[in-house]
Design a protein around this nucleic acid. Structure first.
Length: 641
RNA sequence: GCCGAUGUAGCUCAGCGGUAGAGCACUUCCUUGGUAAGGAAGAGGUCAUGGGUUCAAGUCCCAUCAUUGGCUCCA
């Protein structure tokens, strides 16, 4: 007999060789019907794999992330089976589960493939799913594995096998399809009830540009048809909220081929929104002891040679511009920190002056590969809400915690309440990628980890994700549709102060080196606004909306009164317009609704007579009438929360 | 940068070998209308750019540019 510990802490006894499925059955039949796999001593196993020692077991269903991953990975095998049945001779690379769904990299040889073929594959997959074929785990020797795929002439699988250790290799077979696979898998294909292939793309074998490009087919599957419908609805909603579409419709920003790709231009309404956003942060920063600075858009090449960025990124950047006479080289600034270091050096600093906090909405330019540009989220020119904090080593952790507070304040004010913090550390295997001493790295990494811990942040640690000059803490927010975005960042840097030979005089009257913290709560205004647009579907918080109200006179007879109302409402905090077009009120309301204007003020005979305005709220309808003063107070209260 | 898709009026799109289409927006006129589209008329395009095939090219082929889905990259 063996002891099985379940997630609730209870221990049950089973015969050795019991499977997770049998354990599930012993609990309830309903549970057994939904079990996809099981986590056995921290490792995900097939539900029908025999357990022969004491173990901690948690049964995985569709509601567990790991259950979903198993489901999708098994779906990748099902797709492969369909592909092999439909297109004999297809060779297979890898087919993992991803955050939503799965993909399989395949080599069709000379065959053309496009999304037009999806329908056929989906149909075949569903047909194969109905056979309820078991996913059978078959341990094989390395030699057997090689023989099988040599016969199949699949060089990709052979390439994978090469790196595997004999004795730990398994095949999985369902129906007529056998694949090299570590597993685990769901019990049988019958669990897969709904299938949708989403897109095709090229992907290099093992992500290596010098190797052959395979066709990557993405798909997603569900245990219920209704879940697929929900998923499709979610995709449609995401399309509706796409910031590129809304940016155009709401006249926020635009791009021009003539100006250059990846260089966003802000239209009046977008500029107004952006202005409000930066003023908001600037106020918060002034309160937190930051000082605003301004630096030029270009910097001498030597500045970046000193900072180390030239060596690291020089070749992949916009190339230097030269002065015509002397041939001096200047670079468009790709970041603000070197400029700020020079500002720090303006005068000798005492330990009493620290921390010094320089903030700047600095526009920077980076050469991004053309294929990488995307709306406002990936551009070649953008404005960072940048600041650099120069502090004593003993202040680092405290400063770091203050920055965390500021970032969270910003997120909360803008309605992002679901976030996690990612601690990005050095890749311990590959230290040559980074600059700076081991000692400093250890100090910095410890400071970040402790600060995050003391602030009680929900964190994940990622090795190898650090910047080349220091570790960082990145904030990932989840938007209204549950999509994850990386926004704010805080980075500790012991390197630049070294390179720029920054100093302060300590209480011991000796020279010391300050530590630098880079931080940007928004990251970049462009990216942040893009995420904000999608998060709120273009319905911005009232205080950010470029046009907070619009006055809609019922006919031109009330134009004069409407103008008077506008005059008494417009001030530096509230802005609105009048719709004076020769249109009926229904039309004016419709257009204002489409433009997502928060408040519509309707003015007709009644309102003029009573000296009031009739209020209609976007998305909510008629609110009745009120005096102009009353409405103004209401707006002001609402924007100053 | 690499692979695939796309590029027709300000916007959304139809047309896919035989002399350019729709809806919305725009202009003018009529209408002065009470909570999500009042009516009529008009104007607007070297069909991304450059080559080629053809009696004839938005329509087929090639190249370039841009957009886009991925890959790789991201100070």
């Amino acid at each position: 007999m063996i002891n099985i510990t379940l997630p609730d802490g209870s221990v049950r006894q089973y015969e050795s060789g019991t499977t997770s499925m049998q354990i599930a059955l012993s609990i309830s039949e309903g549970l057994a019907r939904n079990v996809l796999a099981a986590e056995v001593n921290g490792e995900v196993w097939d539900a029908d794999r025999a357990i022969d020692t004491d173990a901690t077991v948690s049964l995985l269903t569709w509601n567990d992330t790991k259950g979903k991953a198993t489901f999708w990975h098994s779906s990748a095998h099902l797709m492969a089976e369909a592909l092999e049945a439909l297109y004999p001779g297809t060779k297979f690379g890898i087919g993992p589960a991803i955050e939503t769904g799965f993909y399989y990299d395949v080599d069709f040889g000379d065959r053309d493939f496009s999304s037009d073929d999806f329908k056929q594959i989906e149909t075949k997959m569903l047909e194969l799913a109905k056979t309820k074929s078991r996913y059978e785990r078959i341990p094989v020797s390395k030699a057997e594995a090689e023989t099988y795929f040599t016969e199949k002439d699949d060089e990709y699988k052979l390439d994978l096998i090469k790196d595997l250790e004999d004795g730990y290799i398994t095949f999985y077979k369902q129906g007529n399809f056998t694949d090299l696979c570590r597993g685990p898998h769901i019990p049988n294909t019958g669990f897969i009830k709904a299938v949708k292939l989403t897109n095709v793309a090229g992907a290099y074998w093992r992500g290596d540009e010098s190797r052959k490009q395979l066709t990557r087919i993405y798909g997603v599957t569900f245990p219920k048809q209704s879940e697929l419908s929900e998923y499709v609805k979610m995709i449609e909603e995401a399309k509706k909220r796409d910031h590129r579409k809304l940016g155009k419709e709401l006249e926020l920003f635009t791009f021009s081929e003539k100006v250059g790709m990846g260089l966003p231009m802000w239209l009046p309404k977008g500029a107004a929104l952006r202005e409000k956003l930066s003023n908001f942060l600037q106020r918060a920063q002034l309160k937190a002891g930051y000082e605003q600075v301004i630096t030029p858009h270009i910097g001498h090449k030597n500045l970046y040679v000193t900072s180390g960025h030239y060596e690291k990124y020089g070749a992949d950047s916009f190339q230097p511009i030269k002065t015509p006479q002397e041939g001096e080289e200047f670079l468009l600034k790709p970041m603000n920190c070197p400029h700020h270091c020079e500002l720090y050096k303006f005068k000798p600093r005492s330990y009493k002056d620290l921390p010094v906090r320089f903030a700047e909405f600095g526009t920077v330019y980076r050469y991004e590969q053309s294929g990488e540009l995307h709306g406002l989220t990936r551009v070649r020119g953008f404005t960072q809400d940048d600041a650099h904090l120069f502090c004593r080593p003993d202040q680092v952790k405290d400063e770091f915690k203050k920055v965390i507070d500021l970032v969270l304040y910003v997120f909360t004010a803008l309605g992002f309440d679901d976030y996690t913090a990612q601690v990005s550390l050095r890749d311990p295997e590959n230290k040559t990628k980074y600059i700076g001493s081991d000692h400093n790295w250890q100090l910095a990494e410890a400071a970040i980890i402790e600060a995050a811990e003391e602030k009680g942040l929900k964190t994940v640690v990622e090795l190898g994700e650090a910047a080349f000059y220091g570790p960082k803490l990145d904030f990932m927010v989840k938007d209204a549709l549950g999509r994850k975005w990386q926004l704010g960042t805080i980075q500790v840097d012991y390197n630049l102060p070294e390179r720029f030979e920054l100093e302060y005089t300590g209480s011991d009257n000796a020279k010391h080196r300050p530590v630098m913290i880079h931080r940007a709560p928004f990251g970049s205004l462009e990216r942040f606004i893009a995420v904000l647009i999608e998060h709120c579907a273009g319905n911005f918080p009232l205080w950010l909306t470029p046009e907070q109200f619009i006055i809609l006179p019922i006919s031109e007879k009330y134009e004069e009164y409407a103008k008077k109302v506008l005059e008494s409402l417009n001030n530096s905090d509230i802005r609105g317009l009048i719709d004076l077009r020769d249109e009926k009120i229904g039309r004016k309301i419709r257009d204002a609704e489409m433009k997502k204007v928060p408040y519509m003020l309707i003015i007709g005979e009644k309102e003029v007579a009573d000296g009031v305005v009739s209020i209609r709220k976007h998305g909510a309808g008629d609110l009745g009438s009120m005096g102009v003063e009353e409405f103004r107070d209401k707006l002001i209260t609402e924007i100053t929360v």
